[in-house]
Design a protein around this nucleic acid. Structure first.
Length: 711
DNA sequence: GACCTGCTGCGGGCTG
């Protein structure tokens, strides 16, 4: 049915590919895209043919003889653009449609050629769109004035993050600048019912956006193993077991940090060398050199014969094509259910194959958390994500970008343009005015007669290559060996001549350090330590903690646990045996200690941080342990009960406390690259909006009942 | 107790 609607060249393409039938998401999308002008979100699991579901009907529908770029494909990753380029070019090969890559590493003369003769399909990143607006806004019109479709790949990766807000703003600016009438097609992995409304908001027109979902779920087999970690590094028992588990298959191992990724890769390789196993052990994360990463991806994708093991971080979570793997190993719990879903989806990618995951854990609370994530995965729960409605920091970034783009814009016009942008819908006009006033005062912007232009400080900020992205990056040392790039590592005391490090699944000795140009020269060595990388800690969703609580208080037995896991679960359940819990949403176990009280909140990280902050305002210091979601509060029982039962909200001045905390500790705002340029009042607002969850914390304190152990 | 993502313009040197 859907097949017949496609144009003849596309049907020919399908016949040549010998596809016997269209995939479900393709069959659903083709008639909708061909016959309506709606925006669509195509949600379907990895490797289910989403790219073709969008491009088969788009190429059928669009007349590529018209002047101007007809289709703009936006991707969060350069690597994905390079992957998709091959697929889309293959689709277009008999149709004389030009496909052009447009990102920071793409060929410049091909970009120039496109500007001279704008046509076909362009593959781009959000930052490159931003750069075009800032440096060559006339090109935006030349290229895109006749645009018919925008395809956004991995659109879920933009949901609930600053980069998504930037993308929303850019989509609006694109439409306003070019007057083009385009439809938006978002491609997404599973997003969960909870997120349909939020993901529709990205197009800027919820009413016109429809979601098409393929709910087919693959069978997943999971097995849990437990090896208590005693030292800093993994124990030999775990490594040996992991080796036997992985040496006869194609495997991905996810150990949750770059340092541990290196440790696993190097140590498994060493075991393999000793027993004469295969040598295909790799590490893959952001600090491994790009070319090495590409060669690892390529090995996995093209090699049929040999087994391999890639130890990796979330770099291999998104849609980069690495072919099929037999098995996924997770070491200690993921920080979210959606991360677990993506990682599991990496195995058994062929239709009809089941996915296989083995979960190793090394601490009892990590074990419980991973069991909770697995339980929620089976119940089809995914963390709900929320588009920030008062993104004053992104607003400031876009103000500077728009000022540069227009080189002179009337103040009223600038304000109006911001107000009309759906991404800033809930920011009031007087707030925009106030932020502009502050920008004028600090010379980010300047007013000449009634026109706004970039100020001196603003020029300095916008003319940096760091301007185009809304996320922060750390500065690193570049590591190379005899002219060959290995990767990067951040500054640490470990950077010293003679020290040995692990990187790109190999051991190296530092031969030379150049502190002026941040370069490290290394030679191969035999033994070393993983480099230390710093991170800030993730946010666990409350539902994961609730599930942990439920598991603790249930008698359910899990066939997917090995004997060690079973006894750890018993141990944990025994610890909580004497708490009588009637209502998981209200009852809070507490333990009286000598000078403090231990409160098991079983709530999310943001709520925990907020509760700690509230207690600090009230004069009670506390220690937060995110492993078991507990707060050890320096308080007595009467005080604690008082705080839990009274209306705390009215008694504290949150804004004042955050202001003081900000003065004391500037790193508070580290999550926001552009927040530092805002007036303090707005900094406080974004901290409340994105760092904390005070509504969640107040509601927790109000409804909770403290439960002591039965005697 | 974390992970990830992106990038201009210009000038100089080299290659085809």
């Amino acid at each position: 049915m859907a097949y017949k609607l496609l144009s003849e060249p596309i049907r020919k393409y399908i016949r040549e590919k010998r596809w016997d039938k269209l995939r479900p998401i393709q069959a659903a999308a083709i008639p909708k895209i061909l016959e309506t002008n709606n925006h669509y979100i195509l949600a379907s699991h990895t490797a289910s043919g989403k790219t073709e579901a969008a491009f088969l009907p788009i190429i059928s529908k669009v007349n590529f003889n018209e002047v101007g770029v007809q289709v703009l494909y936006i991707s969060p990753l350069i690597a994905l653009i390079n992957d998709q380029f091959k697929r889309i070019e293959d689709l277009c090969k008999n149709l004389e449609i030009d496909v052009t890559k447009w990102h920071g590493e793409a060929n410049r003369s091909l970009k120039k050629k496109l500007i001279k003769d704008p046509q076909g399909i362009v593959l781009i990143t959000p930052e490159s769109i931003e750069a075009m607006f800032v440096n060559a806004p006339y090109n935006v019109v030349t290229l895109f004035k006749n645009l018919k479709f925008i395809v956004i790949d991995e659109i879920h990766s933009f949901l609930g993050v600053d980069r998504g807000l930037q993308l929303m703003s850019l989509l609006f600016r694109l439409k306003e600048r070019t007057n083009a009438q385009f439809a938006i097609i978002g491609l997404s992995a599973t997003i969960g019912n909870e997120n349909f409304l939020e993901i529709k908001k990205i197009t800027g027109d919820v009413e016109r956006t429809k979601v098409l979902v393929d709910k087919t779920k693959k069978i997943t087999k999971a097995y849990f193993k437990y090896f208590e970690n005693k030292g800093k590094e993994y124990g030999l028992d775990l490594l040996k077991d992991l080796y036997l588990e992985t040496n006869h298959s194609k495997t991905l191992v996810f150990p949750n940090s770059r340092a541990k990724t290196e440790e696993i890769a190097v140590k498994l390789r060493r075991i393999s060398d000793k027993v004469g196993g295969h040598k295909n052990y790799f590490s893959h994360h952001s600090s491994v050199d790009k070319e090495i990463r590409e060669s690892v991806e390529n090995f996995a994708k093209t090699n049929e014969r040999f087994n391999f093991c890639i130890s990796c971080t979330s770099t291999l979570e998104l849609g980069i094509d690495i072919g099929t793997v037999d098995k996924v190993v997770q070491i200690d719990s993921t920080f979210s259910v959606s991360s677990l879903v993506q990682r599991i989806g990496r195995s058994g990618r062929k239709e009809g194959e089941s996915s296989n995951v083995i979960i190793y854990t090394t601490t009892k609370w990590s074990f419980l958390q991973s069991l909770a994530c697995w339980g929620l995965y089976e119940k089809d729960f995914l963390e709900p994500l929320r588009i920030s409605e008062k993104a004053y920091d992104i607003l400031l970034h876009q103000l500077l970008s728009i000022a540069k783009q227009n080189s002179g814009i009337k103040q009223a016009e600038l304000i109006n343009f911001i107000i009309l942008n759906p991404v800033f819908k809930l920011i009031r006009q007087n707030e925009v005015e106030e932020i502009i006033e502050e920008c004028l005062k600090l010379e980010y912007l300047e007013k000449i007669r009634d026109e706004i232009i970039l100020g001196l400080e603003g020029e300095y900020i916008v003319n940096s290559k760091d301007f185009y992205s809304v996320f922060k990056t750390e500065e690193n040392f570049k590591v190379s060996s005899q002219g060959r790039k290995i990767g990067e590592m951040p500054f640490s005391p470990q950077i010293e001549v003679g020290e040995n490090i692990l990187l790109a699944a190999r051991i190296w000795k530092i031969k030379d350090v150049d502190f002026n140009s941040n370069k490290i020269e290394v030679i191969p060595a035999n033994d070393g330590k993983p480099p230390t990388y710093s991170g800030t800690g993730g946010n666990i969703h409350p539902e994961i903690r609730k599930e942990m609580f439920r598991i603790l208080k249930s008698n359910f037995s899990y066939p997917e646990l090995n004997e060690n896991c079973k006894s750890i679960l018993e141990e944990l359940r025994f610890e909580f045996k004497h708490f009588t819990i009637n209502d998981f949403s209200r009852d809070v176990p507490i333990v009286l200690k000598e000078n403090s009280i231990l409160v098991y909140t079983f709530s999310g990280s943001k709520i925990n941080k907020s509760i700690k902050f509230i207690f600090a305002i009230l004069g009670y210091e506390s220690l937060l342990d995110e492993n078991n979601s507990s707060l050890d509060i320096n308080s007595n029982l009467d005080d604690l009960k008082g705080i839990f039962t009274s209306n705390i909200k009215s008694k504290i001045d949150l804004d004042l406390a955050i202001k003081e905390a900000l003065l004391e500790n500037k790193t508070f705002l580290n999550f926001s690259k552009w927040g530092v340029y805002l007036p303090v009042f707005y900094q406080i607002e974004i901290i409340k909006d994105r760092y904390f969850d005070f509504d969640g914390a107040y509601s927790f304190l109000e409804k909770s009942r403290l439960v002591l152990q039965d005697i």
